[in-house]
Design a protein around this nucleic acid. Structure first.
Length: 286
DNA sequence: CGTGTTTGACCTGCGC
DNA sequence: GCGCAGGTCAAACACG
């Protein structure tokens, strides 16, 4: 359960973050963005339109510093420098849907790709696949975050559906799925075994819906929560700044642990949303 | 009662 | 083909 009685320590914790773009071949080859250009380019690859200057690096509280490459597989957090507060490093993994983002090495071996092609990702991706049906890999975005809490608030609601012990790591990996039944976005959360203070969050897929202001009751906001990840704290006086995770339009308040009290929505025109233009949601084909 | 978490079993991918 | 590790399912359980 996330801390419903806690003042969102993660929000406060994560104040500085860095963008890192990774494209994964199989599942783990990555690229790293070290400047705004790459950042926006990379994000745009995922349909996220982030004005390069409108927000300004300083305005975003982001550090796009040069990072030593992260070793994909075993220790993605290895590259995390000494952080002051928290850092979030987006890591985009390549996928068939994002060819340009993919690394030179095939994201998916031809053989597998063919299989995937045979199984349209649209709905089959997250559906209870039948036995023998291969699962489709969605584009992935990983963040390395310095935070004391594992589950960072990203404005969406998630349901934990699994947890696994990670090899060579004392920390388990948790699997979350967007609670929106129509949304197949998943995220994985694990702690770096080298630096326990580092949380690695990996998003997979893109939200096909706008965020909902409240967990239940159907109150739907008009704004996708995703852009918030680049919003400076000054924008949300009522909420502690929290780097919104660069995810496509996702869902709301992952904050309240379900039955918990819903997080109060930001005042219209301010708060969670920054200057960032929400990406086009691809799934709904609108 | 509805929603979310826990957890063991099962499935899948991949390297050898 | 085998074994390992990652990923997912789903029943049981917990909580408000």
């Amino acid at each position: 359960m996330s801390g419903e009685d806690k003042p969102d320590p993660d929000f406060a914790a994560a104040s500085t973050w860095e963008l890192r773009h990774d494209t994964a071949a199989a599942d783990n080859s990555f690229y790293y963005a070290t400047d705004d250009y790459k950042e926006s380019t990379i994000l745009s690859e995922f349909g996220w339109n982030i004005p390069p200057d409108s927000t300004g690096a300083s305005n975003r509280h982001c550090d796009f510093a040069d990072f030593p490459p992260i070793e994909p597989d075993s220790a993605p957090s290895r590259a995390v420098p000494d952080a002051i507060g928290s850092r979030i490093e987006p890591i985009v993994e390549a996928s068939p849907s994002n060819p340009s983002v993919s690394s030179s090495s095939s994201d998916d071996p031809p053989e597998k790709s063919s299989v995937a092609a045979a199984n349209p990702p649209a709905d089959t991706a997250g559906k209870p696949k039948k036995k023998g049906q291969k699962r489709i890999r969605q584009p992935r975005f990983a963040f390395v975050t310095k935070s004391e809490v594992d589950h960072l608030e990203d404005g969406y609601r998630w349901r934990k559906y699994g947890q696994k012990a990670v090899k060579n790591s004392p920390f388990p990996r948790s699997y979350y799925r967007c609670t929106n039944s129509k949304c197949m976005v998943k995220k994985r959360i694990e702690r770096s075994f080298e630096d326990p203070s580092v949380v690695i969050t990996t998003y997979e897929g893109q939200h096909s819906h706008y965020s909902v202001g409240y967990p239940r009751g159907g109150m739907v906001t008009q704004e996708p929560a995703f852009p918030n990840y680049l919003t400076p704290s000054s924008n949300s006086p009522h909420l502690p700044y929290h780097p919104r995770l660069p995810h496509p339009p996702l869902q709301p308040a992952a904050g309240s642990s379900g039955r918990g009290e819903p997080r109060a929505p930001p005042p219209p025109g301010e708060g969670l949303l920054g200057d960032i233009v929400p990406p086009r949601m691809r799934n709904n084909g609108s």
